[in-house]
Design a protein around this nucleic acid. Sequence first.
DNA 1: TACTTGACAAAAG
DNA 2: CCTTTTGCCAAGT
Length: 111
Amino acid sequence: MPDLNFYGKVYEVVRLIPPGRVTSYGAIANYLGTRGSARMVGYAMQACGSANPPVPAHRVVNSAGLLTGKFHFGGDRMEQMLASEGVKVENNKVVDFKNLLWDPAMELDHD
DNA sequence: TACTTGACAAAAG
DNA sequence: CCTTTTGCCAAGT
């Protein structure tokens, strides 16, 4: 990948998330090598609106599978998109999160 | 250059 | 189980 900033790298990884799957901020940060920058991942999502192509930020949740960013999407839009991809959401959290979790460091960096 | 801010995470109470 | 505290790092001001 080209010389992308931290945000750019985050976008690249998030775009690799297959439909019907979800990942956590920490997983992405860990894949980028900066596990402590999990907050930056979410922070980058905030700026994902300017990214092109768009970033499926709705597939990114926190370590507990909680839709922390649903409020930023505006309403239940995040849940609707996830539901459309087959991801069940209940009480603002992903059902079978661990089963649907797509960890790039484990899926991509896999030998 | 220094301070503030977070769509987080893990630990402690 | 829920709330609070601490650590973390990059971007914006």
